[in-house]
Design a binder for these strands. Sequence first.
DNA 1: ATAAAAACATACTAATTAGTATGTTTTTGA
DNA 2: TCAAAAACATACTAATTAGTATGTTTTTAT
Lengths: 197, 197
Amino acid sequence: MSSKKAAATRLNILQKAFELVYKNGYRTTSVDEIIATTQVTKGAFFYHFKNKDEMGLAMISEVMQPGMHKALIEALPNKGNPLEEIYGMMESLLLKDPFFIIKYGCPAINMVEEMASQNEDFNKALSKLVTQWAEAITATLEKGKETRKINKDINTKETAIYIVSGYGGIRNMGKIYGRDCYISYLAQFKNYLNTLK
Amino acid sequence: MSSKKAAATRLNILQKAFELVYKNGYRTTSVDEIIATTQVTKGAFFYHFKNKDEMGLAMISEVMQPGMHKALIEALPNKGNPLEEIYGMMESLLLKDPFFIIKYGCPAINMVEEMASQNEDFNKALSKLVTQWAEAITATLEKGKETRKINKDINTKETAIYIVSGYGGIRNMGKIYGRDCYISYLAQFKNYLNTLK
DNA sequence: ATAAAAACATACTAATTAGTATGTTTTTGA
DNA sequence: TCAAAAACATACTAATTAGTATGTTTTTAT
């Protein structure tokens, strides 16, 4: 069993690592950098994680996964109009969330981009993350079918992936074009959602 | 003036670097690795490029830019139906181009993802690259307006960015879900294109 | 043909990397 | 309270990094 303080140290490492990785990328964020900003020593780091990748995987499951889960529950309560909920989720992610910095994109998408092709374990962990999101959207779309707000012929799974994929794409464009392209995207996205009616 | 052999050496470095960067990322591809696979010595490398970033920028403008230009001219001749041309371009990029390896995504998109936020010079060079593609699509859409194949009310610039962004997004998803999600995406993409009529 | 410049080769350096060896301190359960 | 385990600290290592210093060879223009 681990002490409260030890758990705090571990979480501190994971959270600071998450911020650094968000801004600089996973592979170019060094363990030395992480321990420097956390004020934790190397001994503590490698006591909690047997190597850097184990920390990275813990970061995904213990910081990113819960963070996304929380955002999903808030954005998609499946109460009102499903298309409005989905649009609202997108708008909130792109324009309202104070954590995101446009030029750095989305931490999860960045991580997929960088690590999915490089490491099977990361691929799995990230796949889980993305799938969780896609499934939440699928559920919202299915609910929409029941309430007749969404066309019965729509392939909800395919549509959900298309939406997540679109999000990833515009996050990437934002790195080049900035906030303006988010606005344009949202306009186009609204049009797209209307084709699902 | 540079000799033919010297120009070949330089291009050889750029092309091999491009392949390595495609598979491993820019920052995690070392100069040592590049010169090892090119059979070029360090002296030659740093004779042609004063540092790694200068090589990276040359790679973008001298390998990636021309490569994309060639693909664009072939895919969008602006002769037949603009929507069919755009769909064909997407399909060919995702499913037919023998250079692309699904798990590694798209070299240009990867580069944007990794470098646009890290280095102003890279951001500019990549922005140019992406803008060039978007402009080609815009032109095709505009042509489509003239021939009445595309709705006059469509914002062609916004639509072009939306398409490029969608491409980037699905390239990222492909790293997780593989070829299947390309197929799904193309189906959805076709639907989307039809809304532009 | 030859001097000058261009092109390339070899051997180095200082900084950074992930990870380890070996400690000391702190917490925990009996 | 006290031994054992957990948690952390310090000092190291071997490999890798971008880049340089100093050469030699090749090409070019006259």
